[in-house]
Write a protein that binds this DNA or RNA. Structure first.
Length: 286
DNA sequence: AAGATTGTTGCTTA
DNA sequence: TTAAGCAACAATCT
Protein backbone atom coordinates (compact mmCIF):
# COMPACT_ATOMS: atom_id res chain seq x y z
CA UNK A 1 0.00 0.00 0.00
CA UNK A 2 1.30 3.44 -0.81
CA UNK A 3 2.65 5.10 2.34
CA UNK A 4 4.90 8.12 2.73
CA UNK A 5 7.98 6.73 0.88
CA UNK A 6 5.84 5.37 -1.94
CA UNK A 7 3.89 8.61 -2.43
CA UNK A 8 7.12 10.62 -2.19
CA UNK A 9 8.75 8.41 -4.83
CA UNK A 10 5.78 8.95 -7.13
CA UNK A 11 5.92 12.69 -6.43
CA UNK A 12 9.56 12.95 -7.45
CA UNK A 13 9.06 11.06 -10.71
CA UNK A 14 5.83 12.80 -11.55
CA UNK A 15 7.27 16.23 -10.94
CA UNK A 16 9.90 15.64 -13.62
CA UNK A 17 7.21 14.50 -16.04
CA UNK A 18 4.44 17.06 -15.63
CA UNK A 19 5.74 20.28 -14.04
CA UNK A 20 4.89 23.44 -16.04
CA UNK A 21 2.71 21.50 -18.46
CA UNK A 22 -0.92 22.15 -19.29
CA UNK A 23 -3.83 19.82 -18.59
CA UNK A 24 -5.72 19.59 -21.85
CA UNK A 25 -8.16 16.76 -21.24
CA UNK A 26 -9.71 14.89 -18.32
CA UNK A 27 -11.49 11.58 -18.84
CA UNK A 28 -13.43 10.33 -15.82
CA UNK A 29 -14.22 6.63 -16.14
CA UNK A 30 -15.49 6.29 -12.57
CA UNK A 31 -17.30 9.31 -11.15
CA UNK A 32 -16.74 8.27 -7.55
CA UNK A 33 -12.98 8.59 -8.05
CA UNK A 34 -13.30 12.14 -9.44
CA UNK A 35 -16.53 13.62 -8.06
CA UNK A 36 -16.04 17.20 -9.25
CA UNK A 37 -16.53 18.72 -12.66
CA UNK A 38 -13.46 17.72 -14.70
CA UNK A 39 -13.87 20.77 -16.96
CA UNK A 40 -12.69 22.96 -14.07
CA UNK A 41 -9.19 21.51 -14.51
CA UNK A 42 -8.83 21.79 -18.27
CA UNK A 43 -6.54 24.60 -19.41
CA UNK A 44 -4.75 24.89 -16.04
CA UNK A 45 -0.98 24.58 -15.80
CA UNK A 46 0.85 22.50 -13.18
CA UNK A 47 2.93 24.87 -11.05
CA UNK A 48 4.03 22.44 -8.30
CA UNK A 49 3.89 18.77 -7.30
CA UNK A 50 3.90 18.35 -3.54
CA UNK A 51 3.16 15.76 -0.85
CA UNK A 52 1.63 15.92 2.60
CA UNK A 53 1.10 12.69 4.54
CA UNK A 54 0.03 10.12 1.93
CA UNK A 55 -1.57 12.81 -0.23
CA UNK A 56 -0.18 13.90 -3.55
CA UNK A 57 -0.87 17.57 -4.26
CA UNK A 58 -0.75 18.88 -7.81
CA UNK A 59 -0.90 22.67 -7.64
CA UNK A 60 -2.47 24.44 -10.61
CA UNK A 61 -2.83 27.97 -11.84
CA UNK A 62 -5.93 29.90 -10.71
CA UNK A 63 -5.51 28.68 -7.12
CA UNK A 64 -6.73 25.20 -7.91
CA UNK A 65 -5.22 21.97 -6.52
CA UNK A 66 -5.67 18.35 -7.47
CA UNK A 67 -5.43 16.18 -4.35
CA UNK A 68 -4.84 12.48 -4.91
CA UNK A 69 -5.20 9.71 -2.35
CA UNK A 70 -4.07 6.30 -3.60
CA UNK A 71 -5.56 4.42 -0.63
CA UNK A 72 -4.90 0.67 -0.93
CA UNK A 73 -4.22 -0.03 -4.56
CA UNK A 74 -3.86 3.30 -6.34
CA UNK A 75 -1.39 3.70 -9.19
CA UNK A 76 -0.33 6.71 -11.23
CA UNK A 77 1.19 5.71 -14.55
CA UNK A 78 2.77 8.24 -16.91
CA UNK A 79 2.99 7.67 -20.63
CA UNK A 80 5.03 10.43 -22.26
CA UNK A 81 4.36 9.39 -25.84
CA UNK A 82 0.89 7.86 -26.12
CA UNK A 83 -0.26 6.99 -29.66
CA UNK A 84 -2.50 9.54 -31.35
CA UNK A 85 -6.20 8.76 -31.39
CA UNK A 86 -8.04 6.74 -28.81
CA UNK A 87 -6.40 3.34 -29.12
CA UNK A 88 -5.06 1.50 -26.11
CA UNK A 89 -1.43 1.87 -25.09
CA UNK A 90 0.64 -1.29 -25.18
CA UNK A 91 3.04 -1.44 -22.24
CA UNK A 92 6.57 -2.74 -22.47
CA UNK A 93 5.89 -5.30 -19.78
CA UNK A 94 2.89 -6.97 -18.19
CA UNK A 95 2.08 -5.37 -14.85
CA UNK A 96 0.12 -7.25 -12.16
CA UNK A 97 -3.45 -5.84 -11.89
CA UNK A 98 -2.85 -3.64 -14.95
CA UNK A 99 -1.98 -6.21 -17.58
CA UNK A 100 -0.47 -5.25 -20.88
CA UNK A 101 -2.63 -2.30 -21.96
CA UNK A 102 -3.72 1.11 -20.74
CA UNK A 103 -6.40 2.01 -19.96
CA UNK A 104 -6.96 -1.20 -17.98
CA UNK A 105 -10.06 -2.38 -16.17
CA UNK A 106 -8.86 -0.57 -13.04
CA UNK A 107 -8.28 2.79 -14.78
CA UNK A 108 -10.56 5.41 -13.20
CA UNK A 109 -9.28 8.73 -14.53
CA UNK A 110 -7.06 9.75 -17.45
CA UNK A 111 -5.42 13.19 -17.47
CA UNK A 112 -3.87 14.43 -20.69
CA UNK A 113 -0.96 16.66 -19.69
CA UNK A 114 1.12 18.26 -22.42
CA UNK A 115 1.88 15.46 -24.87
CA UNK A 116 1.55 12.70 -22.28
CA UNK A 117 -1.18 10.89 -20.42
CA UNK A 118 -1.44 10.19 -16.69
CA UNK A 119 -3.50 7.14 -15.76
CA UNK A 120 -5.05 6.88 -12.31
CA UNK A 121 -5.69 3.22 -11.63
CA UNK A 122 -7.39 2.01 -8.47
CA UNK A 123 -8.66 -1.52 -8.38
CA UNK A 124 -10.74 -1.18 -5.23
CA UNK A 125 -12.30 2.24 -5.91
CA UNK A 126 -11.30 3.59 -2.49
CA UNK A 127 -8.84 6.17 -3.81
CA UNK A 128 -9.91 9.52 -5.20
CA UNK A 129 -8.90 12.75 -6.87
CA UNK A 130 -10.42 15.94 -5.48
CA UNK A 131 -10.22 19.47 -6.78
CA UNK A 132 -9.75 22.03 -4.01
CA UNK A 133 -9.10 25.76 -3.84
CA UNK A 134 -6.07 26.94 -1.86
CA UNK A 135 -8.30 27.78 1.11
CA UNK A 136 -10.04 24.39 1.02
CA UNK A 137 -6.66 22.66 0.72
CA UNK A 138 -5.24 24.42 3.76
CA UNK A 139 -8.25 23.37 5.78
CA UNK A 140 -8.01 19.77 4.54
CA UNK A 141 -4.32 19.52 5.45
CA UNK A 142 -4.79 20.93 8.94
CA UNK A 143 -6.17 17.69 10.31
CA UNK A 144 -2.95 15.79 9.60
CA UNK A 145 -0.30 15.28 12.27
CA UNK A 146 3.45 15.71 12.34
CA UNK A 147 5.33 15.20 9.08
CA UNK A 148 8.14 12.69 9.92
CA UNK A 149 10.79 14.27 7.68
CA UNK A 150 10.32 17.75 9.11
CA UNK A 151 12.48 19.15 11.87
CA UNK A 152 9.48 19.56 14.16
CA UNK A 153 9.21 15.75 14.41
CA UNK A 154 11.38 15.94 17.51
CA UNK A 155 11.30 14.05 20.77
CA UNK A 156 9.07 16.60 22.44
CA UNK A 157 6.36 16.71 19.77
CA UNK A 158 6.38 12.93 19.34
CA UNK A 159 6.10 12.36 23.08
CA UNK A 160 3.18 14.78 23.16
CA UNK A 161 1.45 12.86 20.37
CA UNK A 162 1.71 9.64 22.40
CA UNK A 163 0.44 10.93 25.74
CA UNK A 164 -3.22 10.81 26.72
CA UNK A 165 -3.90 7.62 24.83
CA UNK A 166 -3.90 4.02 25.94
CA UNK A 167 -4.37 2.72 22.41
CA UNK A 168 -1.70 0.29 21.22
CA UNK A 169 1.39 2.11 19.96
CA UNK A 170 0.97 0.42 16.56
CA UNK A 171 -2.55 1.82 16.23
CA UNK A 172 -1.37 5.32 17.15
CA UNK A 173 1.39 5.17 14.52
CA UNK A 174 -1.32 4.58 11.92
CA UNK A 175 -3.38 7.53 13.19
CA UNK A 176 -2.83 10.21 10.53
CA UNK A 177 -3.98 12.94 12.93
CA UNK A 178 -1.03 12.12 15.19
CA UNK A 179 1.76 11.29 12.73
CA UNK A 180 1.31 11.68 8.99
CA UNK A 181 2.27 9.18 6.34
CA UNK A 182 2.92 5.94 8.24
CA UNK A 183 0.99 2.87 7.10
CA UNK A 184 1.07 -0.77 8.06
CA UNK A 185 4.47 -1.62 6.58
CA UNK A 186 6.48 1.18 8.19
CA UNK A 187 4.59 0.95 11.50
CA UNK A 188 5.51 -2.74 11.86
CA UNK A 189 9.09 -2.29 10.67
CA UNK A 190 9.85 0.72 12.91
CA UNK A 191 8.47 -1.04 16.01
CA UNK A 192 10.60 -4.08 15.23
CA UNK A 193 13.77 -1.98 14.97
CA UNK A 194 12.83 -0.27 18.24
CA UNK A 195 12.23 -3.57 20.06
CA UNK A 196 8.80 -2.34 21.13
CA UNK A 197 5.79 -4.66 21.28
CA UNK A 198 3.07 -3.28 18.98
CA UNK A 199 0.33 -3.74 21.58
CA UNK A 200 2.02 -1.57 24.23
CA UNK A 201 -0.28 1.27 25.28
CA UNK A 202 1.19 4.42 23.69
CA UNK A 203 1.28 6.36 26.96
CA UNK A 204 3.40 3.69 28.68
CA UNK A 205 6.49 4.15 26.49
CA UNK A 206 9.39 5.67 28.38
CA UNK A 207 11.43 8.60 27.06
CA UNK A 208 14.14 6.35 25.69
CA UNK A 209 11.62 4.21 23.81
CA UNK A 210 9.87 7.27 22.41
CA UNK A 211 13.06 8.70 21.03
CA UNK A 212 14.29 5.34 19.76
CA UNK A 213 11.02 4.82 17.94
CA UNK A 214 11.18 8.33 16.53
CA UNK A 215 14.65 7.72 15.13
CA UNK A 216 13.65 4.34 13.71
CA UNK A 217 10.55 5.76 12.02
CA UNK A 218 12.79 8.22 10.17
CA UNK A 219 15.23 5.39 9.45
CA UNK A 220 12.71 2.99 7.90
CA UNK A 221 11.00 5.75 5.92
CA UNK A 222 14.37 6.78 4.47
CA UNK A 223 15.17 3.15 3.74
CA UNK A 224 11.84 2.83 1.94
CA UNK A 225 12.68 5.91 -0.10
CA UNK A 226 16.13 4.56 -0.93
CA UNK A 227 14.59 1.44 -2.46
CA UNK A 228 11.88 3.38 -4.30
CA UNK A 229 9.12 2.15 -1.98
CA UNK A 230 7.67 -1.31 -1.44
CA UNK A 231 6.04 -2.97 -4.45
CA UNK A 232 4.61 -5.63 -2.17
CA UNK A 233 1.20 -5.52 -3.81
CA UNK A 234 -0.05 -3.01 -6.36
CA UNK A 235 2.33 -0.10 -5.95
CA UNK A 236 4.45 0.76 -8.96
CA UNK A 237 6.32 3.86 -10.11
CA UNK A 238 4.84 6.22 -12.74
CA UNK A 239 7.28 4.71 -15.27
CA UNK A 240 5.92 1.21 -14.41
CA UNK A 241 9.09 0.02 -12.68
CA UNK A 242 8.82 -1.48 -9.19
CA UNK A 243 10.18 -0.47 -5.82
CA UNK A 244 12.30 -3.05 -4.00
CA UNK A 245 11.87 -2.30 -0.30
CA UNK A 246 9.68 -5.41 -0.01
CA UNK A 247 12.91 -7.42 -0.35
CA UNK A 248 14.19 -5.87 2.88
CA UNK A 249 11.27 -6.38 5.28
CA UNK A 250 12.16 -7.73 8.71
CA UNK A 251 8.67 -8.60 9.96
CA UNK A 252 5.94 -7.31 7.65
CA UNK A 253 4.11 -10.23 6.07
CA UNK A 254 6.66 -12.65 7.53
CA UNK A 255 4.59 -14.59 10.05
CA UNK A 256 5.95 -18.10 10.46
CA UNK A 257 9.46 -17.12 9.38
CA UNK A 258 12.30 -16.80 11.86
CA UNK A 259 13.62 -13.46 13.09
CA UNK A 260 16.97 -12.57 11.53
CA UNK A 261 18.28 -11.40 14.90
CA UNK A 262 17.04 -13.93 17.47
CA UNK A 263 15.56 -16.78 15.38
CA UNK A 264 12.17 -16.56 17.13
CA UNK A 265 9.15 -17.19 14.91
CA UNK A 266 7.54 -13.94 13.67
CA UNK A 267 3.95 -13.69 14.89
CA UNK A 268 0.90 -12.11 13.34
CA UNK A 269 -1.79 -10.60 15.57
CA UNK A 270 -4.70 -8.25 14.92
CA UNK A 271 -4.68 -4.72 16.37
CA UNK A 272 -7.42 -2.27 15.57
CA UNK A 273 -8.65 -4.82 13.04
CA UNK A 274 -5.36 -4.65 11.15
CA UNK A 275 -2.71 -7.28 10.57
CA UNK A 276 0.27 -6.72 12.84
CA UNK A 277 3.62 -8.51 12.59
CA UNK A 278 6.29 -8.66 15.25
CA UNK A 279 9.06 -10.78 16.74
CA UNK A 280 8.06 -12.15 20.18
CA UNK A 281 11.75 -12.54 21.03
CA UNK A 282 12.89 -9.02 20.22
CA UNK A 283 9.72 -7.07 20.97
CA UNK A 284 8.70 -7.54 24.58
CA UNK A 285 5.57 -6.06 26.09
CA UNK A 286 7.19 -3.84 28.68
C1' DA B 1 -18.81 -19.66 -0.78
C1' DA B 2 -18.44 -16.92 3.23
C1' DG B 3 -14.88 -14.46 5.61
C1' DA B 4 -10.60 -11.90 5.81
C1' DT B 5 -8.04 -8.16 4.12
C1' DT B 6 -6.75 -3.15 3.51
C1' DG B 7 -6.86 2.88 4.88
C1' DT B 8 -9.98 6.03 6.13
C1' DT B 9 -14.43 7.87 7.52
C1' DG B 10 -18.26 8.29 10.14
C1' DC B 11 -21.30 6.38 13.38
C1' DT B 12 -22.02 4.09 17.86
C1' DT B 13 -20.63 2.81 22.35
C1' DA B 14 -18.41 3.41 26.68
C1' DT C 1 -17.18 15.30 26.60
C1' DT C 2 -14.27 12.70 24.26
C1' DA C 3 -11.75 8.44 23.31
C1' DA C 4 -12.11 4.07 21.45
C1' DG C 5 -14.25 0.46 18.73
C1' DC C 6 -16.28 -0.99 14.60
C1' DA C 7 -19.09 -1.24 10.24
C1' DA C 8 -18.82 0.26 5.64
C1' DC C 9 -16.65 0.95 1.30
C1' DA C 10 -14.75 -2.40 -3.35
C1' DA C 11 -12.43 -5.99 -5.03
C1' DT C 12 -9.69 -10.02 -4.51
C1' DC C 13 -7.94 -13.99 -2.44
C1' DT C 14 -8.46 -18.08 0.36
Amino acid sequence: MPELPEVETIRRQLKKAILNKKITKVEVLSKKQFPQNPKLVVGKIIIAVERRAKLLIIKLTHQKNLIIHLKLSGQLIWQSNPPAGGQKIKLKRVIPTVGEFLPSKSTRVILTIGRGKLFFNEMRKFGWIKLLTNVQLDKELQKYGIEPFRKDFDQKSFAKALTNTRRPIKTVLLDQEKIAGIGNIYANESLYLSKIHPAMPANTLNAKQVNGLRENIIKVLKLGLKYGGASDEYYIHPDTTRGTYQNHFSVYGKSGESCRKCRSIIKRISLGGRGTYFCPGCQKAE
